[in-house]
Design a binder for these strands. Structure first.
Lengths: 155, 155
DNA sequence: GCATTCCCTACCGATTTAATAGATTTTCGT
DNA sequence: ACGAAAATCTATTAAATCGGTAGGGAATGC
């Protein structure tokens, strides 16, 4: 499961992308519209800012806006930023690897093999789709959206 | 991430399947061989027993053994039993659904669509492979194993 | 009867999660 | 210069979860 923090981050980002025209969005507005605790969202946006994904302006008429282009921000990078590992086992994680301590040889470990496969399939989808891609599937039906999201992922 | 408990459960089960010939395996032996805290493993095996996956015998020369056939126990069912939801969001979980409270309509929610796709791909692999399938990929190389695991999953 | 083994209930400490509080700094309009 | 509005910083908290332990009880075989 993604943490609430990560879920909030994704929804907040999508909201920001959706409203790129209105050039400053306050924490308060995002919190209200997306039903996120304001103070909690505050910290999330700082993380996103430190990662260079959004920018901010202080003071009156300040607020947040996209820094990177939506088509260059993958969902994967948000998850890794906020939650860390995506893999279901530490010993198959690419970015947060740790030995599991149970198998003496990972190359022959059956569990390792299975969850490596799961990881690969998951990463394909999460790295292959950006905030911009999510915008596009907005109006589509379930089936069509899935097809598009998976096609994107197989590149 | 799977919990340690779930990782222990999978490794323990695989060990039991691998040693089906020696007809009783004690907690102590499994704990030693798989490097799992004995007392912790105790509780795990009770869960697996209550689910009808393994059986046990008390007293001297007692121990654990497989109750269900390895080819009828999917990895998915172990995970659901021990950890619960597999999906990355509560609102896309089939067995542990909860509303996320952020989107007013799940049918049009972009996040929901994306993680539904991830869930589908993940479930295909985890439900399509059993403890017996894991045995088979034991000796294979990475590439070959992956191919087999994914083929199994596409049925 | 005794050793062995599973089984049950309870507990514990550390960490993480989700959230809140309060004070500070920056910025803008007037 | 002033005041309102906004982001920012530091600290704290309450609750839940995780990983693990303790200790006794119950069944079984010799």
């Amino acid at each position: 499961m993604l943490s609430k923090k990560c879920q909030y981050a994704l929804h907040a980002l999508i909201y920001i992308v959706e409203h790129e025209d209105s050039d400053r969005l306050t924490i308060q507005e995002i919190a209200d519209k997306k039903n996120i605790p304001k103070k909690f969202l505050e910290g999330i946006l700082v993380d996103l800012k430190n990662a260079g994904i959004v920018g901010s302006k202080k003071g009156k008429f300040g607020g947040y806006y996209m820094m990177k282009r939506p088509e260059s921000v993958s969902v994967l990078e948000i998850i890794r930023l906020i939650d860390g590992a995506v893999a279901m086992l530490p010993c198959v994680s690419l970015n947060f690897y740790e030995s599991c301590g149970r198998c003496d040889d990972e190359a022959t470990c059956r569990v390792n093999k299975l969850f490596s496969a799961v990881r690969d399939e998951t990463l394909k989808i999460l790295s292959g789709n950006t905030l911009a891609d999510l915008q596009k599937v907005g109006g589509m039906g379930k089936k069509e959206a899935k097809k598009v999201l998976l096609k994107k992922a197989s590149l």
